[in-house]
Design a protein around this nucleic acid. Structure first.
Length: 156
DNA sequence: GCCAACGTTGGC
DNA sequence: GCCAACGTTGGC
């Protein structure tokens, strides 16, 4: 197993939970992920200390707003068991949970939001297959290669 | 607010 | 196991 730090991009709607909210609370359980591919990245890929690009989606200027880090390994998402939660999953049981999450820790805000529009303009450097700029991109958690990570931050 | 893309569900 | 219907995501 490689000890090298990995990098990820995680989306959040700032109306629901923004980089400022993360700064306020410090560490946050990343609940509500209900997509198997995204779950698998958290469960199987993430290690404590990994770098996270915090992306603001579904907002006026979507883009990368800050940097966070992975603060725990994966554990069951409590909201799946809670009938009052928006994220309740009646098919999940404590014996066999479906959904896992990791804790995410605030590192810093970027000096400016790096807009999606600008990121798209660098498709050549990032590679056309970069998940953020692929057509119909809906995945909310996905890996970012270290050179892509460096490149994106160089735009700051 | 619109709508394309796409994941999930459930009938068959 | 197929696939139509449906719900959600997220850019614009």
């Amino acid at each position: 197993m490689s000890k090298r730090r990995r990098y990820w991009l995680m989306k959040s709607e700032p109306d629901a939970f923004s980089i400022d909210d993360l700064e306020r609370v410090g560490t946050e359980p990343w609940d509500g992920v209900r997509n198997y591919q995204a779950r698998n990245f958290m469960r199987d890929g993430m290690k404590v200390g990994d770098g996270v690009l915090f992306y603001h989606s579904n907002t006026k200027v979507p883009g990368i707003a800050g940097i966070a880090s992975v603060a725990s390994t994966a554990y069951p998402d409590e909201s799946q068991f809670d009938p009052d939660s928006h994220y309740y999953d009646p098919k999940a049981t404590r014996e066999e949970p479906r959904w896992q999450l990791v804790d995410i820790r605030f590192e810093r805000k970027l000096r400016r939001v790096i807009p999606l529009e600008e990121i798209k303009a660098h498709a050549e450097e990032l590679g056309e297959e970069f998940a953020l700029i692929r057509r119909g991109n809906r995945l909310s958690v996905f890996p970012v290669a270290s050179d892509q990570y460096e490149f994106l931050l160089s735009l700051e």
